[in-house]
Structure formats: structure tokens, C-alpha cells
Amino acid sequence: MSLQRPPRDTRLDLLRGWLQLQIFASHAHGSLIGAWLISAAWGLSDSSEQFVYLSGFVLGSVFTLKAHRGGWRAGLADLGPRIRRLWTTHMVVLCAMAAMVLAVEMTVPLPGEAARLGWSWLAEAPWLALPAAGTLLWQPIEMGILPVFIWSMLLLPGFLWLAERFGPWALAPSLALYLAVQEWGWQVPGLGGREVEFNPLAWQALFLLGAWFGRRALLHGRAIGLNRWGLGAALLVLAAGAGLRLASHLGALDVSGLDDKQHLAPARMLHSLSLAYAVVALWRVREVALRGPLLRALAAAGRQSLHVFCVGLFLSYGLAVLFRQQGWQWWLEALVVLGGLALLGFATAAEWSPGLARGVKNPQK
């Protein structure tokens, strides 16, 4: 069977750009925008789940296309450099963030800032911490999401090999591992006294489920059938999530067991999949006219999502420091908005500048 690369789905670019803005706002701790005006404030999941699922979807489709055109080695030849670039990006971001956190501790000053964010080991024994970081098993706070992508990408070839031969049964090992995490608390041991964030034994299930649907979309023209009953069920889950989150905001209910992010609690996973299905069911037009600079910039942020995320980490941490020093101020909220616009500008510049675009090639694209 001859497979053709499908036309680019503009919805994915816009969605990933919007998700990047939400991630940036949520990391600017102290901001009312990040606390109340993002989807995580009104549900049991957030942008992280959508990114992991969408990355699996895209890479599952890309690997399948490469393998069908040039054989399994062609798929591996495409995936390998993506993993290497992502690992390199993680290490560069980790070292740069360490420098920023240590500089903040010494100059702001914020005594104990490095220890609070889990960077003490690097400050005390960098000859041990850096090799440990290279294994992806030492993760200071907010340094855990990129390793999840790397570990999941390493599983992708074997998973798609199983899918080629055993169909839906290829999902069984992944789901069994996920259930083991939920039932017995399995997790990957961390180094340097730090827990591995985003337990990869659980989060791989979301990535590989996305890869399964990405493969189906390539082979059969669509990932899943759309019907009223499925949409109704998804909307009920989202409504229940909003109700539970509201009760949590009011102090009437503790939902920490339902929305456990570390181990991707079943309710959290169900909510994220329901949100993905509802968006696809309600927004069926693949090609969206990108009229106006804002929509074009948002789509560019989606295409350059990895590096927009990385730049956003530094901007949001700087804003979080300001919120801690100044308390809530209206002008700090204005800076959050300006920071989001700056990220859109960075993404647009990356696409308009050939040299910069080559320099920020996206391993997940």
C-alpha cells in the first residue's frame, strides 16, 4: 500500500500554540491568569496531557509513513536524531535554568531558592549531578516533562512493530504497565534525592495511545469515528470535571486523588482524552484560514512548540520571582500578557528567519 503524507492539520498548530500560552501562564506562579483563566483551572487535566498525546499522535503517524516508504530502518533513521536533539535540548535547558536559579538566589536575593527548587545537588556536586541529569533520572522542579517525551519516543518503534503484527493488542503491555502504576505504585527511581516527575511508567500510556490513533489516521484516513453518543459522553466527563474543580475551589472537596499528575490518575487521563475527543468532534475543519497576525503567530508557536516551551520556562520563572517579591500587582499581570505576546513573536521570528528556523528545528514536528 502506497501512503501519502496527509495535508498539514492547521488545527494542531493552533491548538499547540494555545497550549503553549497556557503552560507559560501556569508556570508564572502567582498570576491570576495562570490560576484562573486556563483550562486546568476548570477541569481535572491540563495542557501537559494534550501535548504528550498530540506528540504521540504526530510521531506515530510520521514513523509509520517513513517505515512504509523506506522500511523500518528509515523510520528509525528519522526518529533517532529527533531523540538526540530532544535530549540535547533538555540538557541545555537544565544547565541554563540552573544558572538562572543560582543567580536569582545570589542577586535578588532569595535565600534557599536553589534548595527549594531541587538544585542543591548541582550546586554541591556538579560532577555527579550533571551525569545523573544525562540519565534523565535527576530532575529538579519543572525539569521533568522533556524526559517523558524521550522515554516514550524510545518505546515508539517497538510499539508500532507490535501494532503492525497484532493490531489493538499492541496496547496491552502499555495499558498493563499503566494499571500496575495505579494499583501498586510502580515508579522509576530518581537520583540525588529527587523523585522522577511525570512517572514515565504511567505517562507512556498516553503517548502510545496517541501513536496508535496517529497510525490509524494515516492508514485509514481518520483516527476514530465521530458520533453523538461519544461526544455526549465526553461532554459529560468535562462537565463533571468542571463541577469537581469548582467544588475544590470552594473548599468543599479534595480532588487530589482524582487529578494526581505525577502518576496520571485514571480520572485525569479520562478527562484529557474526553477533552481531545470533544475538540475533534466539534472542530472538524482541518484547514483553518490564518487571517490576521495573531492567528498566524499562534500557529507558528504550535509549529515551534518545543522551543517556545523552553523560552517560556525562563520568562515564566522570572515572572514568578517578581510575584514572590512584589505580591500580586496589576502590572505584573500585564507582564504575563506581554510575555505571551513575546513568545508568539519569537515563534514568528523563528519561521521568518532561515538561520533561526534551522537553529530551532523541532524534534517533535
Rank of each mutant, 00 (worst) to 15 (best):
D254P: 06
L238Y: 07
A289Y: 09
A242H: 04
M269R: 11
L218T: 03
G214C: 08
R216L: 13
A240K: 01
A217M: 00
G232K: 10
S305G: 12
G243S: 08
L218Q: 06
R222K: 15
V279M: 11
F323N: 05
R291A: 15
L313E: 09
H249M: 07
W229K: 10
Y277R: 10
Y277C: 01
V311N: 01
G318L: 07
L294M: 09
L298N: 05
G225V: 02
A247I: 03
A267G: 02
F323S: 06
A299P: 06
L244P: 08
R245A: 14
S248E: 15
C310W: 01
A240I: 12
G241T: 02
F323T: 02
G225D: 14
R215L: 09
Q326A: 10
N227T: 00
V308D: 06
A217D: 10
H307V: 00
C310Q: 01
R291V: 10
L231F: 08
A297R: 14
A267R: 10
L226Y: 08
F314L: 12
H249P: 02
V285H: 14
A320R: 13
A299W: 13
G292R: 11
R228Y: 01
L218E: 05
L218I: 02
G318D: 07
S305N: 15
P266G: 12
A276S: 09
R222I: 00
